[in-house]
Design a protein around this nucleic acid. Structure first.
Length: 145
DNA sequence: AATGTCAGCAACCGCAGTTTT
DNA sequence: AAAAACTGCGGTTGCTGACAT
């Protein structure tokens, strides 16, 4: 039992090293998220370069910012994309192109990454189908600022 | 039950723009 | 004005779970 625990502990300890060596993607743990949230509560969501060290986690400033912006921020709205939102994404993408952050700005609670992923996975299929059926049926769209 | 394949999500990287020194 | 540091964005890719064989 104890040897098994030691083994698992050793594996945990070597994970960052392995990640660095193999460029593996390390998922965020609840502990890391909590430490980051605490550091941000104290120091604010600024100066990302120093947040990681202040939080005491082995992550880059970019990684911390990304995690906060896309998952931990209270502004984030998790859940399925509604039909309305989907329609808006399609229209905005036609209008703006791959300006995901701009599109996200029009969708409260949604992030650029979420929209980018959604477009690249769900909508690309739909659009492929539509284009293969003949794109002449596409609606005329007017974007109102 | 085991293995292979695929789709979706999440993380990282490189670059460009902005701000600070 | 120039260099350095920081921030934000978009593209790419690895990981995981679900489904098929």
């Amino acid at each position: 039992m104890s040897s098994e625990n030691q083994d698992s502990t050793a594996r945990e300890l070597t994970k960052p090293f392995e990640a660095a060596m193999n460029k593996r993607k390390e998922r965020w743990t609840a502990q890391e998220e909590q430490k980051l949230a605490e550091a941000l509560a104290v120091h604010g969501a600024q100066k990302w370069t120093s947040i990681a060290s202040k939080a005491g986690i082995n992550r880059s400033c970019k990684s911390c910012r990304l995690r906060w912006m896309n998952f931990l921020s209270p502004k984030i709205k998790r859940g399925n994309i509604s039909d309305q939102e989907e329609d808006l994404i399609i229209r905005l993408h036609k209008h703006l192109g791959n300006r995901w952050s701009l599109i996200a700005g029009r969708l409260p609670g949604r992030t650029d990454m979420e929209i980018k992923n959604y477009r690249n996975t769900h909508l690309s299929k739909k659009i492929d189908k539509q284009s293969s059926n003949g794109s002449s049926s596409t609606r005329q769209i007017s974007i109102v600022d």
